[in-house]
Nucleic acid binder design. Sequence first.
DNA 1: GGCCCGGTTTGATCCTGATCAAAGTAGCGC
DNA 2: GCGCTACTTTGATCAGGATCAAACCGGGCC
Lengths: 239, 239
Amino acid sequence: MKDCGTCPIQHRAVCSLCNRDELGKLEAIKYYRSYEAGQTVLWAGDQMGFVASVVTGIASLSQGMEDGRTQMVGLLLPSDFIGRPGRDTAPYDVVAVTNLTICAFRKKPFEELMLTTPSLASRLLEMTLDELDSAREWMLLLGRKTALEKISSLLTILASRDATLYKKATRNGMAFDLPLTREAMADYLGLTLETVSRQISGLKKAGVIHLEGKRRVVIPDMNQLMTKTGDDMDGGILV
Amino acid sequence: MKDCGTCPIQHRAVCSLCNRDELGKLEAIKYYRSYEAGQTVLWAGDQMGFVASVVTGIASLSQGMEDGRTQMVGLLLPSDFIGRPGRDTAPYDVVAVTNLTICAFRKKPFEELMLTTPSLASRLLEMTLDELDSAREWMLLLGRKTALEKISSLLTILASRDATLYKKATRNGMAFDLPLTREAMADYLGLTLETVSRQISGLKKAGVIHLEGKRRVVIPDMNQLMTKTGDDMDGGILV
DNA sequence: GGCCCGGTTTGATCCTGATCAAAGTAGCGC
DNA sequence: GCGCTACTTTGATCAGGATCAAACCGGGCC
């Protein structure tokens, strides 16, 4: 496994592109960049001179309407891809939700590399298809799930991603830090922050989760939470 | 321009893949297939031996929950792509909404062709990115728009697609046939069919649209309809 | 300590869209 | 024509979340 340079999580290949860069071709065109929580990485419509992969932290993609309503359309966790080969402006706002480090590649050379490296191109298609699948999964959530199901689904996803990231077991009890504010959760779920708060209180009262402070979530029984998502449970952990 | 074989719409390159197949490599592995309105092309989980492009008609992609709630996650119009290179089961139900003709390619040889034909691979990435963009556009609609805005957006999109398909002007008045039942519209918009019906009646009463029969929609002034979508209007016609 | 500030919780009320129910319409086969 | 079926419209009522409003933390900083 190739080390991703300054990658802060030891022994984990979080930069999913460098990780497969057997020939070291990406090495020459990559650089790291960091953002503080709350900083905007790109505004919708911005010129975009790079593509990138999230190394640590979380970024969000958001669409806004003129009257201020916003909808988060993607949550980028470590190893997720940012950017559009073949397009030159950002279609959405990209915001650092937590402190964020990305591994960026200059776009022009990256695109040239794609033409001569079929494995890179097919890896990218693969990743885009995955994103498409999760976008569509999210459409079901936004269109048809109740507030309770939405919250439960989000917690389940965050818990699973956190678990895979740190290689922890999920089945019997786990804990993780909520990286999102109530407002960010609301934006992602198509709810208001008050509703998010109320539903979380509900889950807490029901004993499905408990909170240590405002942000640390303890889930005594993962299955109990998953019951509330409305999803099929035998598919195992979703991502 | 290459003719797409039995393609029923004359002088139009609706099979977007054959259309660019300068070398005729796709010729050998393609075949046509037709479905009647209402027929299911693929069930979620089905083995999927082909990829395809819609030639005529409309297909839908739907996700279902066990309790019967369903959410349409994509509407495939002529030239849209069906299938997943690199995956072998269908992730969603694919249903023929109207009578449907597709141009299918056997998956194995198609994938091999992709490896040796960078232009095909990059075309596919392009198409997938487009799908991802429209999925995310739809997430904004599902999460944040009102019923009226949802209906208006759908009508606007259908009108625009219809216009490009038949090369008609959209700005000053147009008419087209609604290909979807109220129920299908509801599934797509995350509403109930009653709400869809009521909102359409509302638009009719307001003079924004009128109906000839149940299915033919006349839009005297496209701009008036677009005012109701909640979208930015200077971006021109969305697809 | 006291203060401020961002984030959170909780309460009261309102309203949009869901639900339940019934009637209307068009097409089609007989 | 009749009756059937699938689709649509309209009405009455309900409820899940939104909205408006206030109080409640928990830090950080003076």
